[in-house]
Design a protein around this nucleic acid. Structure first.
Lengths: 348, 348
DNA sequence: CACTTCACGCGAACCGGTTCGACAACCGAT
DNA sequence: ATCGGTTGTCGAACCGGTTCGCGTGAAGTG
């Protein structure tokens, strides 16, 4: 079942078999066919380990995703799926690595033991040890997300700042003056998670530009937290008429909280944000949102990484995406119900 | 950076370095420390490819998941995440393979090129080529799901039949007499997808036992399809008062369809089914459902596979799980609103 | 003091491919 | 007949580990 066996049966040398299969040197049509027949008969396939050892390439990409214990969001699934598919199109396999903090065990495995030719990093933080580490090593990698100083790096990212700004402007245009921002969990914000930071930045900036009264909240990645968060928002400022969120996992809970408080979406309360399209369509009314093009981002990341692998000294490239806001049904003009009705919640 | 380099610097032979690091033969404390110092200084890590070639084990598990183009569900994400985590605990990496149909390219890569020591299969069909193929090859694998004849195989599965039966009984106990079943997409049912079949079987059986009037539907894996499906259900039999579903991606759409038709959950209409707990808690009212313990299943699958790898001729084992129904808020007694009100939908 | 025993370390072979340099056979051109 | 250039094939070295068998020096024993 190894190349020697094939060579013996075909009556040629091992190197000839190798050349016949790889085509890296001409082989006469006759011996090529002879070899091919033996290969087909035995169903021979060259061992990936041996090949990797010999030519130093594993044909495998590493996909580094967030630390264990975190909730996984739907977006992450879309990244994973699209990365795997895109990689397969280039004849690469994908090795999953549950790495979070820098220099942890499985991260070491990928690089130190040379299991992968390149890596794609998810869940980027503004100051990211992993990115620094990889770039110091000049190890081919592409980040899905963008650090504080992304110059000279390879990445594909979403312009969360601009997207959230647009959401705020959209709401302001509709007449909303008191808006809340529902961010990802505080722990993520504290550790410098990119989208949480840039989203917040965009929110603050746009709110200032429009002179809005705003509050910002962190919210756990689950429905219950979303519900609690809405309770806090309406308690802190019952006159709030809209919110912007990045937290797709909490979305259902946000809606529930609003319903419980007797706020009808979009009549008395508008909701918008940046979430995957699939989630935006799951809630009722469907969410007006900038749809995260996760599948496209995964594909682009693989494209970049493969390019970087094929041309080791190509200049750094990146893609910054700014998908448009999809108008659905969760936002509407402010003041359909007068602002005066703010004393107590109408429902328990 | 290879073992020869370490040996040279430590002034010993390559084999001694190998033994010192693996501990497979005793090495004097002194030389061991000498070697360890050099290793630490240079940050040496043995090449995975070379090791794999030498000892025939890749320390990698394959995770075979559904064909491209499918929507991925939240459940699948939970499987992937828990498998990766559990594998890491055993010092295995996980290689993702987007294989669907049998003997397709990437499936061949995993096995033919010996990239993995064992495989975990997801999205099992009752007659599954991949399972047959692997068991014919005696290749170590564990299925998440159970074929029509699972005897002698390694798997971890959910007793969809029993779970859906329980859902039906739960509804029947509440007085519901006309119940619909919302299955996964027709294409999955047609190709023999396990959960769709067994779920349907359990539904039919329990409905017969309780003498219920039922209809069964297939529904696409997205919110819009869910909404459309509810419209069909209420059109086909406006007296329907409850539904059971396996389709978590459609859940939001089902709720929307009911709301649009003016049916309040759970006052005029009960909903239940088998979905991941996270999803059940996202909708409002929260879904009374048998929560799919996806994370546990992934972990168990890895446990089984590792056991099988460590003891090549251990007898086949499996786990059939039957999680309890979590009572939440989406089911209630039938007839809170009289059955007579069935002429036309009250809302558009 | 010679004789086993044991702990330790070494060299060589091997895993299964790839790749380089050499060489033989054949071609047409001088 | 000789020479230069192809074309097709082979042998050997190499990738970076693991593992087996053997040799050696020190310790233990009668």
């Amino acid at each position: 079942m190894n190349i020697g066996e094939i060579a013996r049966r075909a009556g040629v040398s091992r190197s000839t078999v190798s050349y016949a299969l790889s085509g890296k040197r001409p082989v006469s049509e006759e011996t090529r066919r002879k070899i091919q027949r033996v290969v087909d008969e035995l169903g021979y396939r060259p061992s990936a380990s041996a090949r990797a050892l010999a030519n130093g390439r594993t044909s495998t990409l590493g996909l580094v995703f967030p630390p264990a214990g975190n909730h996984y969001t739907g977006m992450q699934l879309d990244f994973i799926g699209s990365v795997v598919e895109a990689a397969a199109a280039y004849d690469y396999d994908v090795l999953l690595s549950p790495s979070g903090v820098d220099s942890d065990r499985s991260f070491q495995r990928l690089l130190g033991e040379r299991r992968v030719d390149g890596a794609i990093l998810m869940e980027i933080r503004l100051e990211d040890d992993r990115v620094d580490h990889l770039s110091a090593l000049a190890f081919p990698s592409v980040a899905i997300g963008r650090t504080a100083r992304p110059e000279g790096a390879w990445w594909v990212g979403l312009d969360h700042t601009a997207l959230v700004e647009r959401c705020v402007h959209h709401l302001a245009d509709l007449g909303h003056r008191r808006i809340a921002f529902v961010n990802r969990p505080e722990q993520l914000l504290r550790t410098g998670y990119e989208s949480a930071h840039r989203g917040l930045e965009g929110f603050t900036k746009a709110a200032a530009e429009r002179g809005l009264t705003v509050r910002t909240y962190c919210c756990g990645d689950d429905a219950d937290s979303g519900q609690t968060c809405v309770e806090r928002i309406l308690h802190d400022d019952p006159a709030t008429t809209a919110l912007v969120t990045l937290n797709e996992a909490a979305l259902g809970g946000l809606y529930r909280g609003l319903a419980r408080a007797g706020r009808h979406v979009p009549r008395d309360f508008s909701v918008t944000g940046v979430v995957a399209g699939r989630w935006a369509e799951t809630v009722t009314p469907q969410l007006t949102a900038a749809d995260v093009p996760a599948a496209e981002m995964g594909r682009l990341a693989v494209d970049l990484l493969v390019e970087r692998l094929d041309h080791p000294d190509a200049p750094p490239r990146h893609h910054l995406l700014t998908p448009p806001i999809s108008l659905r049904a969760s936002t509407g003009p402010a003041g359909a119900r007068p602002d005066t009705d703010t004393g107590t919640d109408t429902a328990r």
